[in-house]
Simulated scan of single mutants.
Amino acid sequence: MMPPLDIYTLVGFVGMACIIAAYAYVTVKNKPDPFILHGTNLAGAVLLTVSLVVHTNLPSLVLEGFWAAIAIYGLAKAFRGRAAHDRSDAKDIS
């Protein structure tokens, strides 16, 4: 018997859709934008975590923690790369 859908389950489904969309995006694109990829993965991990806090499944909750950490690392790396690119552009102009 399936439990009724509540708001937390629906939030989890949206998070799942984000993660699947990010995976499809990186698979389809030749040069995926890291901000779109990691931002979508982070949004998905956060939304799934909200759902899992209410409907606890410890292994999935731990997985989402790692998923979010990897996405945050990817975003930080993308921001550092953009800053380095901007600095090199500034040197080319001077």
Score class of each variant (00 low, 15 high):
M1A: 14
P3Y: 04
P4C: 02
L5N: 13
L5Q: 13
L5G: 03
I7K: 14
Y8C: 11
T9Q: 05
V11Y: 02
G12W: 11
G12N: 08
F13G: 09
V14L: 14
G15M: 09
M16P: 00
C18H: 00
I19D: 00
A22T: 00
A22G: 00
Y23T: 03
A24M: 02
A24V: 09
V26L: 11
T27R: 15
V28L: 15
K31A: 10
K31F: 05
P32S: 10
P34A: 11
I36C: 09
I36G: 11
H38P: 00
N41Y: 10
L42A: 15
L42C: 10
L42M: 14
L42T: 08
L48Q: 15
L48C: 15
T49N: 04
T49I: 13
T49W: 07
T49Q: 06
V50I: 15
L52W: 04
H55P: 02
H55K: 11
H55C: 04
H55E: 10
N57A: 05
N57K: 08
N57G: 00
N57Y: 12
P59R: 06
L61F: 06
L63C: 03
L63Y: 07
E64M: 12
E64K: 13
E64N: 15
E64S: 05
G65I: 04
F66I: 10
F66E: 03
W67C: 08
I72Q: 00
Y73D: 01
Y73A: 03
Y73G: 00
G74S: 06
L75Q: 05
L75M: 12
L75V: 05
K77Q: 14
K77S: 08
R80Q: 14
G81P: 01
G81T: 01
R82I: 00
R82K: 11
A83R: 09
A83H: 06
A84D: 07
A84L: 04
D86W: 02
S88M: 13
D89Y: 06
D89F: 04
A90F: 12
K91F: 14
I93A: 15
I93N: 13
